[in-house]
Computed example of a mutant assay.
Amino acid sequence: MSEKNKQGEMSFLGHIGELRGHLIRALLAIAVGAFLIGFNIKWVMDTILLGPTKPGFLTFKVVNYFSRMVIGQDSITLPEHFPLQVRRLFDQFNAMMAISIVGGILLAFPYIVWELWKFISPGLHENEKKNSIFIINSTWIMFVLGALSGYFLVMPFVINFGYFFSLSDSIRVDIDLSSYITIFLQIVLGMAVIFLFPIAVYILTSMGVLTPMFLKTYRRHAIVVIMMVAAVLTPADVLSMLAAAFPLLILYEICIIMSSRVYKRVQKNNNTEDNKDHLTKIEN
């Protein structure tokens, strides 16, 4: 059986084979990223993952700077040595595997999106390719911005609350490594995925499924949902929840503005096509 039929269109099996090639290359990119993370795991652990546990972390410096201006003293004072511990034999190994795999996905994500675009681009028209390039680039940019938002805006406040909250002075604070890694990945990856919401809004508005009027009408409901999502992402205090909800609320307002522009463009294109059809009927 030939790869293409007489009309030059790729067969179903041809599409499957093409997709398999893209998936294999994407998995190889993830494997390379995971290997790089695993090979430098101590630096990644000490510098990146444990960064929000150190007093000199950027977020703490900014908060304490403004705190000294307002109340004359630091509001966040984490210890120099954060009390992490392991109580199971393979906790550190399991943590290394989880960090390597997730880190590999993060490093390879732009390439994964690029492979996706290469798979779908042959079947698109020129104007559709331009829009798809915008969507592809926006996807990995928003994903990275979401991960950075979780890392710098949410995780530090979760750590600060979790460490200083106390039921009794007789309780010693020793935090399990597995618990810390789980919360870290939950927040960073959760924020990264949520930041893809504008991409979904753009696509749905372009398809005519979603309108800016709908987003404006249900803004209050969206705020409630955002607060619930922020509470799930941050198993901590109200301040941590607000730190997660604030960028999501801004993101929702950006979605309304973007949806309005896309909606106007779609309506303009539809009107232009209707006028062309009307003129064609008159000429006929």
Rank of each mutant, 00 (worst) to 15 (best):
A200R: 14
K130T: 09
M191S: 10
S149Y: 06
M142I: 05
L185H: 03
N131S: 12
Y218K: 15
L145S: 07
G190S: 05
V201I: 13
I181E: 02
G150D: 01
I135D: 02
N160V: 02
V209P: 02
E128G: 07
I159L: 13
S138N: 05
L177T: 09
F214A: 14
I175S: 06
E128S: 06
T182S: 15
Y163L: 10
H125I: 08
V209M: 06
R172Y: 08
E126H: 09
R172A: 11
K216G: 07
F184C: 13
F134G: 09
L177K: 09
V193Y: 07
G146T: 01
L153Y: 12
I171F: 15
A200D: 12
I171N: 10
F165D: 08
A147E: 02
T182M: 14
I136G: 13
I203W: 12
N160C: 00
G190E: 08
G162W: 05
F214T: 12
G146A: 03
L189S: 10
S206E: 09
V201M: 08
S178D: 15
S132E: 05
F157K: 05
F157A: 08
M142K: 05
S206I: 01
F195A: 08
D169Y: 12
A147T: 04
V158G: 01
G146E: 00
F165R: 09
V188S: 00
L177V: 07
T217P: 01
Q186A: 06
I159C: 12
D174A: 11
S132A: 12
L189E: 01
G162C: 02
S170R: 03
L145R: 03
S168W: 13
L189W: 04
N160P: 00
V201C: 03
W140I: 00
L153Q: 06
T217N: 11
H125A: 09
I199V: 13
I203F: 14
F157D: 04
T182R: 12
I135V: 15
L189I: 11
M191R: 04
I187A: 01
F161Q: 07
N160E: 10
I133P: 01
S132H: 01
L215Y: 01
S149H: 08
F165K: 11
T139D: 02
R172L: 12
I203Q: 13
S166V: 09
K216A: 14
I171K: 09
T217D: 10
L153D: 02
F164V: 06
V209A: 10
F165A: 14
G190L: 00
N137L: 04
V173M: 09
K129F: 03
I181R: 00
W140N: 08
R172G: 05
M155F: 12
S178E: 15
F134R: 04
M155P: 02
G190K: 02
Y151H: 10
M191F: 07
L215M: 14
N127P: 09
S178G: 13
M207C: 06
L215V: 04
S132C: 06
L215Q: 04
T217K: 15
Y180V: 06
K216V: 10
I187C: 00
Y163N: 01
S138P: 03
I199G: 05
T139C: 06
P198V: 09
F161N: 06
F134D: 02
N160G: 00
L210P: 00
P212E: 10
V201P: 00
Y218F: 15
I135P: 07
D174H: 07
V144L: 15
D176Q: 14
F157E: 05
